[in-house]
Design a protein around this nucleic acid. Structure first.
Length: 432
DNA sequence: CTATAACTCTCAA
DNA sequence: CTAACGTTGAGAGTTATAG
């Protein structure tokens, strides 16, 4: 039985989430901005038609946007995450095997479903998700993940497919010319650099890449990753569906500041806040960290200004997920790398050397009892914040939450209510 | 010399 | 009024370091 894998992907996912709760956005050009209201990360069809590029810095296109009546919103990840989990639950019902690949897309194993008519099945998915969640999606189907991705691209870009494109139903005589029209850079795993290098050896379209011999790729010093991609393009499924997410190997919390920061005191507060977030993620995964890295950066786009970017990694005395332990090291690291006289724009915390908290090897001189007291304390902290809202209970060093917000806090001037997760926000929504 | 850690590059959403 | 450009994670391959 040949494999059939579907890739279901939300259309303009962030914009679509916003539209579910604000019908006024329908039919209008809308963009969603990245953290700190910095860059465009999602665009409605109307905004794309106006040539708003992906990743455009908002301040550069603000004038143009105003002239065209483009609506810009801060990103509301709480809303998107909740909409995503609802959508994924619905889609999971269409196959016994689902891999949630990102916030807006998942793979579904449809092997053995062929007799149902996969295109019809895909259309049923689209109708169901639109009706029950309100999000438009497209479906691509192929014999491998890479082909499913590519089919999804066709489903999105080519109206004739009406949102569902099934490569497995096409004969080679139909498929080959289609692949011949698609640029090689559209293939999953072929980014800007590889596309450029492939061009250089005469591989311009997906069809060129599909027909490329391993010999030729090796001669041109391409990696095993590219070789695997070519196999996948030829229908040999090399990448398995990952049913459950494997535990992370590192955890990163970094953010740009709402305004430039110069003092060590402000940086300290930000680092404490970010370390706290990182610790929460770490414990949610049931892991402990062996190493923590702190980094601070000035704004590389301010060409005239003196630049400074530094990081330091410190090993924990023994692996831990205790926020207090993490903060102590983070601040020691910050002291080491901080230099006065710069306008800092960003700080970050990286937790590394992760391992499961349960059943780990203890060091001979470890304070096991103290560690267990810390674990219980963190568990209480997490439970309170889970029930009462994040930030309800926090360490003093993190500083005041919002009134007034410290200068370093991320900007989100165009934030919409958390319609699906905060009762208090529903009153706001109604008032609007 | 070998094993591991650290670092760089690339890609993805 | 002015200035204002994201975050997180992975894997492969290379280089540095320790033993």
């Amino acid at each position: 039985m040949t494999r059939a894998i579907a890739l279901v992907d939300g259309n303009n996912f962030y914009v679509s989430c916003q539209r579910v709760f604000d019908p006024k956005l329908e039919g209008r050009p809308v963009v969603v901005l990245s953290n700190n209201d910095g860059c465009v990360v999602a665009r409605s069809q109307e905004a794309r038609a106006l040539k708003i590029p992906m990743g455009a810095p908002w301040f550069q296109i603000e004038g143009l946007a105003r002239r065209h009546g483009i609506l810009a919103l801060s990103s509301n990840y709480t809303l998107y995450a909740d909409m995503s989990s609802r959508m994924m639950r619905i889609l999971g019902g269409f196959s016994p095997r689902q891999e949630i690949y990102s916030i807006d897309e998942c793979f579904l194993d449809l092997t053995g479903f062929q007799r149902l008519g996969l295109t019809d099945y895909g259309q049923r998915m689209r109708r169901t998700v639109k009706q029950q969640i309100g999000i438009p999606v497209c479906v691509g189907i192929g014999a491998s993940k890479t082909l499913a991705k590519l089919a999804n691209h066709c489903a999105k870009k080519r109206p004739i497919y009406e949102g569902v494109c099934d490569f497995t139903a096409m004969t080679p005589a139909v498929l080959a010319p289609l692949l011949g029209e698609i640029a090689v850079g559209e293939v999953w795993g072929i980014g800007g650099r590889l596309a450029e290098r492939l061009q250089a050896i005469g591989v311009r379209t997906v069809l060129d890449l599909q027909r490329c011999s391993p010999m030729r790729l090796r001669a041109a010093r391409f990696s095993v990753v590219v070789e695997r991609t070519v196999l996948e393009l030829n229908g040999a499924s090399c990448l398995e569906l990952e049913g459950c997410a494997p535990p992370k190997k590192q955890i990163m919390t970094s953010r740009s500041f709402g305004a430039p920061v110069t003092s060590l005191a402000e940086l300290t507060q930000a680092v404490i806040a970010y370390t706290t977030r990182a610790g929460e993620k770490l414990r949610r995964q049931g892991a402990v960290a062996g190493q923590i890295q702190v980094s601070i950066h000035t704004n590389p786009f301010q060409k005239g200004e003196p630049q400074y970017s530094q990081a330091v990694a410190l090993a924990l005395p023994s692996p831990s997920s205790d926020t207090r332990v993490l903060i102590k090291l983070a601040l020691a690291g910050l002291q080491r790398i901080y230099r006065p006289g710069f306008r800092y724009q960003k700080a970050g915390i990286l937790l590394d050397g992760l391992q499961p908290a349960q059943g780990r090897q203890r060091s001979l001189f470890e304070d096991v009892q103290g560690g267990q007291r810390g674990e219980r304390l963190m568990a209480v902290l997490d439970r309170v914040n889970q029930r009462m809202g994040s930030g309800t209970l926090r360490l003093l060093g993190e500083g005041p939450g919002t009134d007034p917000p410290p200068r370093w806090k991320t900007k989100a001037a165009r934030l919409t209510p958390c319609y699906t997760t905060r009762l208090a926000d529903l009153a706001v929504a109604k008032a609007c």
